[in-house]
Nucleic acid binder design. Sequence first.
DNA 1: TAGATTGTTAATCGATTAACAATC
DNA 2: TAGATTGTTAATCGATTAACAATC
Lengths: 206, 206
Amino acid sequence: MTQNETPDIIVSRLPVYLRALRHMHAQGKHNTSSQELGEWVGVSAAQIRKDLSQFGEFGKQGTGYKIDFLIGKLSEILNIERVWDVAVVGVGDMGHAIARYQGFRDRGFRVAMLFDNDPAKIGETIGSFTVRDGAGMISAIQEAGIQIAMLCVPAAVAQAVANQLVQSGVKAILNYAPISLTVPAGVRVQYLDPSIGLQRMTYYLE
Amino acid sequence: MTQNETPDIIVSRLPVYLRALRHMHAQGKHNTSSQELGEWVGVSAAQIRKDLSQFGEFGKQGTGYKIDFLIGKLSEILNIERVWDVAVVGVGDMGHAIARYQGFRDRGFRVAMLFDNDPAKIGETIGSFTVRDGAGMISAIQEAGIQIAMLCVPAAVAQAVANQLVQSGVKAILNYAPISLTVPAGVRVQYLDPSIGLQRMTYYLE
DNA sequence: TAGATTGTTAATCGATTAACAATC
DNA sequence: TAGATTGTTAATCGATTAACAATC
């Protein structure tokens, strides 16, 4: 009796569609087609239509999609009509950059807490936040009910910190540390290791 | 007469295998199996063996894989036995963090040049490099023969800068800007937009 | 030798594409 | 109306898994 088991590979394309649609919207466009959107994001028109059809009928024959309507639908589907609080763990260069990143605004996220274990960093102010002691992380995240964390600690401690995050109730980890994490079912990880990205391309270089 | 057309999806897993193997190596392990490696990276043992078999026979029945040997082979395949010079374009918070990132060392990459258009930043020293004027970017990259760039500029100018990079002869772009890029065939892009990563997970959150 | 684990083949599973009736 | 483009079905294509002979 499993209902609409949407493949993860489809879900993973939706944010890309949404980003493109918002770009079009910002350019003053009002309508688009699966053809045009597909060209923009590098996906076939058929796939765009197939992907969207998993969730409903959002277009009109002959005229395509109304951009602001589709933006709204995708935002609903992706569960980002609300704002998600995010904890940043590890305030080295990368954590610093993320804490100050303005791009989360309007995309459904807000950096709400920063943690580090380095006494030299605890108490430091970054943006509008003060770096907290990692020792209090588990209870702080738990009390705030935060479900999303960005992991910017060194690889050597990343698994240990991830375990603490899981213990805190975190269900989604954006991992900048260059290491594979093992987490229980029900917790998701997305990897953003720049070296992996580069090595995926050097294969094709001369 | 097309020979070994290795699927990109296989290539994209190799850096993850390599990262895990180096982790094991650093822990003092000498041997592993497709089973153990698969558990570590979250992939089936059969898939690991299938993937590797695209490139040769690297293991031994009964005993599995010698870690340092396999690291060498994967490094060869991924074309990272040499060191690749990388240009960082845009030295905001993110570009700054990347320029100072130590993780490229030992993974086949070296940040070789930094560019920005902001007069306030040009001339600034980051790590062991001086930020150069973006006006001279095309010729500088061309002359140095750099094929890889990390794009850390605002979304609004990312496509224009990407065009310049292509003109400079860059064949691989690691894109931190939150926008889909259009590039000619023969040029590759990897995306590292943190919001996309987060939105791929919120779908599953309550 | 017996046990373990590879590399590979065949079977399964899932994703993408092509095509088109429906309809705006 | 005629042209355009959707949503969907069926066909194709490709990737993953299961299984096992080979062999260390």
